[in-house]
Amino acid sequence: MGCFHSTASKQFPGHEDPVILASQTAFSVSEVEALFELYKSISSSVIDDGLINKEEFQLALFKNRKKENLFANRIFELFDVKKKGVIDFGDFVKSLSVFHPNAPHEDKIDFSFKLYDLDGTGFIERQEVKQMLIALLCESGMKLADETVEIILDKTFLEADVNQDGKIDKSEWQNFVRQNPSLLKIMTLPYLRDITTTFPSFVFHSEVDEIVT
């Protein structure tokens, strides 16, 4: 075992040992180290403090730090596992792991449920879905009459809200995504399979004695 933790942790608060992170996630040690190359570049893009703030996250997503986006904000909140207003390297790896092609299907369903449960009540409520639909329409410059939005919501809740109590619980969501598997497409990033070839420079910065694949 090398001195990766002791060196990197000085510059990167909350930095965790790549070997431990690999054991807790769908990534190999080499993939964790390759992700560190990506993390270093994102976390130094606005303030070079070794942490990713919301502005840096938005800059990495949109190449535009000023672009406010409901969905990017929600993803940031979920990645900010320790609720510190910033994403540290451990948060980054553990959160991205859910998007790995090999991550458990149940983890993807859980994450997507949390994503759409904007206020964290344990239910996806109609008002939340309406808020997200309106945000999407604004983002894409599409105009839909309020009646049309209500028709879409009626159809969605007729299919997903099996007990018709006006909100989607976890078990209804599990059934709904089973019937509509395309809804989980956003939960898998094929890029994560090739992360070591996308960021090959990790080899030069590796501080573990042996690269475990």
Binding site: N69, L115, Y116, L136, L153, K155, A160
Partner: peptide, 26 residues
């Protein structure tokens, strides 16, 4: 023809803010 109404989540999942692949573009 009868218009096909997508469900809300299909529409929402097209948001750019949910497309994390852009994180990997250098």
């Amino acid at each position: 023809a009868t218009p096909v109404i997508m469900n809300a989540f299909e529409l929402i999942s097209t948001s750019q803010g949910l497309n994390l692949s852009s994180l990997f573009e250098k």
